[in-house]
């Protein structure tokens, strides 16, 4: 399935691996922080609604 990359296989696979790891990390951190902040805000607004 993987094309024959010849003597440059290490370089090509390395470039793809590094880039994909960085992109996945960026997306994961952005989503994780987004969910955490949203949950925090929901909690604070619910507390304010309860306390008037």
């Amino acid at each position: 399935m993987i094309p024959d990359l010849g003597k440059y296989a290490g370089a090509v696979m390395g470039a793809y691996a590094v880039s994909i790891v960085l992109l996945v990390l960026l997306v994961a951190v952005s989503m994780w922080r987004g969910a955490r902040v949203r949950r925090q805000l929901d909690e604070i607004e619910a507390r304010r609604a309860r306390n008037g």
Binding site: L23, L26, V27, S30, M31, R33, G34, V37, R38, Q40, L41, I44, E45, R48
Partner: peptide, 24 residues
């Protein structure tokens, strides 16, 4: 598209974080 998506997502987070700061 990835850049636009992430910037929109992260801007929403920053807006909410700012609101949390203001409420606290």
């Amino acid at each position: 598209l990835l850049f636009v998506t992430l910037v929109l997502l992260r801007t929403r987070t920053e807006i909410r974080a700012r609101r949390i700061k203001a409420l606290l």
